[in-house]
């Protein structure tokens, strides 16, 4: 373990978290408009309760002291009360987050497997028909908005062929007799959203994989391996692939922000009860405490995932220790 590298990455992540907190403070408090009316719905609310809320959020204080109160509350995990759900924001998010993680994991597994596979096929057949075909389809998929892809898949597989359920995560009204039945029901609902979401990222991964492999093919050690008389498949599997995994790890981590965007779109199309649909709901109902909480949690997830990826990178790339 390289402590210096670890600490540097940790401090970087903490600074990013601080930036996010500050952006969110500026967005929700310092924007034109009355923050009191954003965080305390005055109409129909008991004036006593409203007063207590104003005090809790520190909304009666000057802006700079508000900032300190805000940072303290956020660090303690107190995101406030949602208007529309009448529950603490953190509880609602904790309920929804696992669903998004299931969806994102399904999509990531799909796209990592296919991305690496297709990227490797394309790179090892560089310039041939199959390479051009794969590259073309990757570019094409890249240009499709994820939500539109979802609509098209839904209208074909869901509406036209009735192969998969049209919306949600479980069949409404169905009483699941066993864990296995529940699992089966969720899987059936998961297939199409995960595929939509996964396809959108597969093109990205395949292109990066192809590029990384093509770079590696020109390295001296590849020529050495060839000169030693190893066959092509062996060289690709044992020399090129492990080295091409390095940029892949970075790309997978960097595209996490993209994963969030994809999740919001996919969840909207398939009414998946996750963080994405929650964000839309918070926006529609102008539920600002909830919106702020969702925004912070999503950012926090992405930042932590990036940090973890950096640490994994340190383990799989020994060169980084001598930096």
């Amino acid at each position: 373990m390289n402590l210096k590298y670890f600490l540097r990455k940790l401090i970087q992540s903490l600074i990013t978290i601080w930036i996010v907190l500050t952006i969110s403070f500026i967005l929700f408090r310092a924007m034109p408009g009355d923050p009191v009316s954003m965080f305390v719905k005055s109409d129909g609310m008991d004036p006593q309760v409203a007063k207590a809320l104003i005090k809790e959020y520190g909304l009666h204080l000057p802006l700079h002291s508000q900032y300190l109160v805000y940072i303290k509350e956020m660090l303690l995990g107190n995101f406030g009360q949602s208007f529309s759900f009448q529950k603490p924001v953190i509880e609602i998010i904790a309920q929804r987050l696992p669903n998004t993680i299931i969806l994102a994991l399904g999509a990531q597994i799909f796209s990592i497997i296919f991305g690496i596979l297709l990227g490797t096929i394309a790179a090892s057949n560089r310039g041939k028909k199959i390479d051009v075909l794969l590259l073309g389809s990757a570019l094409f998929i890249y240009a499709i908005p994820a939500f539109w892809l979802g609509i098209m898949l839904l209208s074909y597989f869901g509406v036209r062929l009735s192969l998969v359920p049209l919306f949600g995560m479980i069949t409404p009204g169905l009483n699941h007799m066993s864990k296995w039945e529940y699992f089966k029901d969720v899987s059936q609902h998961l297939i199409l959203p995960a595929m939509t979401f996964g396809l959108a990222i597969t093109g990205r991964y395949a292109m990066i994989m192809r590029g990384a492999l093509l770079d590696i093919f020109t390295e001296d050690y590849m020529i050495t391996a060839k000169a030693k008389g190893f066959d092509r498949k062996y060289i690709i599997r044992n020399h090129a692939l492990p080295n091409a995994m390095l940029p892949m790890v970075t790309v997978i981590a960097i595209s996490l922000g993209f994963v969030v965007a994809g999740a919001i779109q996919t969840e909207t199309v398939f009414s998946w009860p996750g963080i994405g649909t929650l964000t839309i709901k918070a926006l529609e109902l102008r539920d600002y405490p909830l919106l702020q909480g969702v925004f912070l949690i999503i950012s926090l997830c992405v930042i932590s995932a990036n940090f973890i990826a950096d640490i994994i990178y340190m383990y799989i790339d020994p060169r980084i220790k001598y930096e």
Partner: peptide, 16 residues
Amino acid sequence: GMMVLPVLPLVMVLAA
């Protein structure tokens, strides 16, 4: 810091 931020939620909040 900006790069790590999930852009779509940020854009959505800003637009709203």
